[in-house]
Design a protein around this nucleic acid. Structure first.
Lengths: 216, 216, 216, 216
DNA sequence: CATGAATGAGAATTCATTCAT
DNA sequence: CATGAATGAATTCTCATTCAT
C-alpha cells in the first residue's frame, strides 16, 4: 500500500543507511567546514567504519556532492509543500519567507558553514580569521546602511528598518552577480542595475489597489 | 634617513611581490576551485618557486585568507571611492549597484568559483555535478517566479521583470539566513519575515514625494 | 557404514565445490592478472557469496596456492597418464611434448597470464606496457636467431628452423638459471654452460644407431 | 667530452636517483616477492621518504614496470656487448650461455623471485608453500628424466647428463607454450612438437663437418 | 633572497576477513 | 551451510612545509 511496501526490505535499509551517512556528512561539515571534513570523520560521526562509506558512495566527491544535493532538495521540497497550501500570491510569499527562515534555523550549522565558506572561503567556523573577514563584510554593509539612512533623513526614503534594507540590497546585488557569473543573463550591467534599483525603490506591489495589509 | 629609505624600497618590492602572489592565487582558484588550488600551482602561476611563497606567507591558510581579504578589500574599496563621489542617496545607490556589478564582471572567474564552490559545494567549475545542482537551484527560483507571476496576473503586483524579482527575493531571504546564522540578529523569524516582505512589497521610496526618476 | 557413506556424500559435494571455486579462480586470474584477482571477483565468477569461499579455504593465500597447485597437478597428471601409454622412450618423449602443448592450449588464458605476469611483471594482460616488454624480449630472441643463422650460412649448423632453435636455446638457458637460482645445482657456471652447449649442438640421440625416424 | 658533459648536472642527478630507486625496488622484490613489495618498503630500502618516490615515478605501477624493464635491459644489454666480441657463431653461443648464467648469478635474488613467482605464483621466497610447489615441479622433471634414462639404457640416446637434458627439454616445452600463448606462432601443435623433438634429438650442428670441438 | 628536492603526516581508497542473519 | 554487509588494517597517493644549496 505504502511506498515502502513496493520496495524490498533491502532497498529500504539501503536508503536508510544512505540518509544516515548523508546526515552525518552534513553534521561533520557543519562542525569542521569542507576542508576539514574527511571521510574518516564522517564515518566516526555516523558510527560506522570508514570502509562502509564506500559501500554506499563511490568516492569522497560523490559523498559530499550527494550531501549538499540532499540538503538542497530537503530544503526546496519542504518549502514547496508548505507554500503550496497558501492561497493568494501574497500569502504564498509570506509563507515562503517564513518557512525558508525557519528551515534555515533548523539546519543552522550546516547552512552557517555553507554561507561562511561562501563568503570567506577557507574560513570555516572556528577559523580565527573568520572574525576579521566578518568585520570587513559588516563594514561594507554599514557603509550601505549609512547611505540609506541619509536618504531617510532627507525624506527620499520612507522610515523603515534600515539595517535590514542595507542587508537585503547587498544580497540582491550579490544574487545579480551570481546570475551574471553563471551566464544566466546577457543583459548589460546598466540594465540589471535599473531593474534592481526599481525593485528596491518601489517594491512589487501594485500601489493603486494596495488595499490588503500584507505585513503583520 | 638612508636606512629608512632603503627599507622603504624593500617594502615596496615586498608589497609588489605579495600582490603578485595574491593575484596568482586568485587566478588559480578561479581555474581549479579551492580544493584543487595547491601552493605548487600558485607558485607556477606566479612564476616563482614554491619555497618563495613561504617567504611572504607563513602558510597556505594565510595565503588563501589574504587572497580573499585582498579580493574583498579591492572590491569594497573601489565601490566606496566611486560611490562617495555621488551626491544624493539615490544617486549613491545607483552607483553602488552599477559599480558592484561592473567589478564583479571584471573578476568574474574568481567570483564564479567562489559562488559555485560554496553554493554547490565541491562543485568547482567544470565539475559535472555542478550542472545538476544548478538545475535544482533554478527550479526553486522558477517556483518563486510563478508565484509572483500569478500575483501580477491577478493584479496585486505591478507588472515588472518577474524573473529578476524572484531572484532578488531569493537572495534577500538568503541574506537573512546569513544574518541569523552569524548571530547578527536576535529577532524572531516572524519579525524578520515581516521586514523582508515589507521591503519586497513596498520598496524603500517615500511614495508621497516620489518625484524623482530613480531609474534610467 | 551409513555414517561413513553419508560422510562420503558430503565429501564428494565438498570436493565438487572446491573444484568449482578453483576453476573460477583460474578464470579470474586469466582475466585480471594476479594483482587484480580479488576474492570478491572469484566469488562472483563462481556465482557464490564472498563468505562462502571462506568455508572452503582458510584465506586468500590458500585459495590461490591451491588453484595453482591444482593447475600443476592437472597438468602433470594428464601428461603422465598419456605418456605412460607409449612404449619406447622416443615415443614417450614425442607424446610428452605433444600432450604438453595441447594442454597448454586448453588452459591458454591461465598460462598466458602466468607467463606474462611473471616474465614482464605487473604486466597483466591488456596492460599497455606489456607490449613494450614483449618487444624487448623478442629483440633478444632475434639477436640469438641471427647468430644461429650465421652459423647455418657458414655451414657449421645444419639447416633447420632457426627461429625455433633460438627460442629453445633461450628457454634452456632460462631453465638453467632457475636450477641455479633454486639451489638445485652447485656446478660452476662454465660446467653448466658446457652441458647446455653440448645438448644444443649434438642433441641426445645416439648417432651410431640412429635408424629410427624420430620425427613424424 | 664524455656523455655526462652533454647532459646537465640536474639530469645526471635525476638519472642517478632513478637508478637508485629502481635498484632498491629490485632488492625489495627479491626479498618480499611482488605481492609484498610496497612503495613504503622501496622507499625504506632506498633510504628516502615515501613521497620522494613519487617525484620520480607517477605511481606504483610505473615504478615496478620500470624496475623490471631496467632489469631486462641491463641483462640483454650486457649479454649483447660481451657476445658481439666473439668471432664465430659457435664461440658466440658459448659466450651467450656463459654470460647469461653469470649475470643471473649476479642478480640471483631478483631473478629467483621472478622465476619462483612465474612458476608457483603467489609463492614468493620464504613462502612456506613454495617448497611443496617445488616438489611437484621436481617430480615432473624427474619423470622426464627417467624416460630419458631409459633411452640411454637401451642405447637410443647417447650417454650424457640426463638430469640436465630433462630440465632443458622441460624448459624448451615451456618456451613453446609461451610462444603459442603470446600468439607468436600459428603452427599446429604437432608441427611445433616435431621441431622441438628434432632439435632435442639431433642438435643444431652440421654432422658432416663437425671437426671443431665445441665443448670444453 | 630564491630555489625546488625532499620530507612525512595525513587523506583517500582497497580488500581480505568476520559474523549476525 | 550460505550470505553479503560491515570492518579496519594496510596501502597508495597528495601536498603543505622545510632546508641545504
Amino acid at each position: 500500500m505504502t511506498k515502502s511496501s513496493a520496495t524490498k526490505k533491502e532497498d529500504v535499509l539501503r536508503e536508510f543507511r544512505v540518509r544516515e551517512i548523508l546526515d552525518a556528512t552534513c553534521r561533520v561539515v557543519a562542525r569542521n567546514g569542507f576542508q576539514g571534513a574527511t571521510v574518516e570523520r564522517v564515518a566516526e560521526e555516523a558510527e560506522i567504519a570508514k570502509g562502509t562509506v564506500y559501500l554506499y558512495f563511490q568516492n569522497k566527491d560523490e559523498l559530499f556532492t550527494a550531501a549538499v544535493e540532499q540538503g538542497i532538495q530537503n530544503f526546496t521540497g519542504q518549502v514547496r509543500t508548505q507554500v503550496t497550501e497558501a492561497l493568494t500570491p501574497i500569502e504564498k510569499l509570506q509563507r515562503l519567507i517564513e518557512v525558508s527562515l525557519e528551515l534555515s534555523d533548523t539546519y543552522r550549522d550546516f547552512f552557517k558553514t555553507l554561507l561562511l565558506e561562501r563568503n570567506f572561503l577557507a574560513a570555516s567556523p572556528n577559523h580565527p580569521e573568520a572574525a576579521h573577514m566578518l568585520d570587513l563584510y559588516l563594514a561594507h554593509i554599514h557603509f550601505i546602511e549609512e547611505i540609506i539612512q541619509d536618504g531617510v533623513r532627507v525624506g527620499v526614503f520612507r522610515p523603515h528598518n534600515v539595517e535590514a534594507s542595507a542587508f537585503v540590497l547587498n544580497e540582491a546585488i550579490r544574487g545579480c552577480f551570481q546570475q551574471r557569473a553563471l551566464g544566466l543573463t546577457a543583459r548589460p550591467v546598466s540594465e540589471d542595475a535599473s531593474i534592481l534599483l526599481d525593485l528596491f525603490f518601489n517594491g512589487v506591489l501594485n500601489q493603486h489597489q494596495n488595499h490588503e495589509e500584507p505585513v503583520s
